[in-house]
Amino acid sequence: MNGLLVLQTDFGLSDGAVSAMYGVALGVSRDIRIFDLTHDIPQYNIWEASYRLYQTIAYWPENTVFISVVDPGVGTARKSIAVRTKSNHVVVTPDNGTITHIKKYIGIEDVRLIDEQVHRLPGSAHSYTFYGRDVYAYVGAKLASGKIAFHETGPEISPEEVVELPVSEAVIQDGAVKGNIDVLDVRFGNLWTNIDRSLFLQLGAQYGDLFEVTIENSTRQVYKNIMTFGRSFADSHLGEPLLYVNSLDKIGVAINQGSFAKAYHIESGNKWKITIRKVDGKNCQ
């Protein structure tokens, strides 16, 4: 491995949980370098943990080890796994769906069940509520430092056995593209959809074109309006909505210098649907 360890949790930074994980990892080896992906995953939100890994992992050097701990099933029969991706990164995590987006969009090369009788912080065998410290930080640091090889973490299982969350595909239907709001750009309140730029362009989209955007959740229509497809936020006036291509080459929805999510009380996940239809600008005057 390359000595790089990246942590993601839903723990926040208001107490000592993340610091304890750092301490365990550095106790394994002081030669590793530890970085934070985020510790602000919404509590218990496995879907968002899966998406943030997918959003980030490809930009790190090969052999970087990631630890992702969003673990509402801690202490139950859920398994702990180490995953080698086809991009040659390693993820140490509960087997609860955290690998969903990586499996679908990047691919999995190898999966190991972590042998928790062998690989855990010495003296922690009677604790069942802090696997992030006692198992994942310990195993991740051993892998990152090269003190154990990937295959030594435990027995191999098929990638098909890994728990996956349901993922919907964006489609073109009745002259419109339909998809989901996968996640929010939390800091700025933009909506990130699962609609690839290439699919969106099949509508004949060009910068400056107008589109009718409809957003629904599982019970009602939340938003319907016409907005411009812009190259950047500067292609709209202050406070105006727009469509744009985000950093993952997917379609995003934003308000110029405002929070779209907050303005219209929009969330993310499989129940949040978006429909985008090209309109004739002449009829929108």
Rank of each mutant, 00 (worst) to 15 (best):
I114W: 10
N194W: 01
G73T: 07
I99Q: 05
L248H: 05
N96R: 00
P61K: 11
H119A: 09
A49P: 08
V118I: 13
I32Q: 15
S168C: 05
I157K: 14
R133C: 14
D209R: 06
I148V: 15
L243G: 11
D280M: 05
I57L: 15
V111S: 04
N246V: 01
K273E: 13
D40V: 00
D115S: 13
N96V: 07
N2M: 01
A205F: 07
G154P: 02
N45W: 05
L113C: 03
V83R: 04
D15T: 03
L191Y: 04
F211V: 04
H237K: 12
N63V: 00
T214G: 00
L238P: 07
I274E: 09
Y223M: 05
R112S: 10
M21R: 00
T153H: 08
V90S: 06
V6R: 07
S247F: 01
P155C: 03
S14C: 06
G97T: 03
R220T: 10
V177G: 10
R33N: 13
D10E: 06
A263K: 15
H237I: 02
K104W: 05
V28F: 05
D110H: 02
S19Y: 00
K282N: 11
A254K: 00
A234D: 11
N180M: 07
G175M: 14
H265L: 14
A77D: 14
P155S: 11
T219K: 12
P159D: 02
G258M: 03
G75N: 09
V92E: 12
V118R: 15
G12W: 02
Y136P: 03
G23K: 03
Y59T: 11
N45I: 01
D40W: 08
C284L: 15
H119N: 05
Q117W: 07
W60H: 09
Y223V: 04
Q206R: 15
D31Y: 07
I99G: 05
F200S: 04
I215L: 10
L201R: 10
S29Y: 11
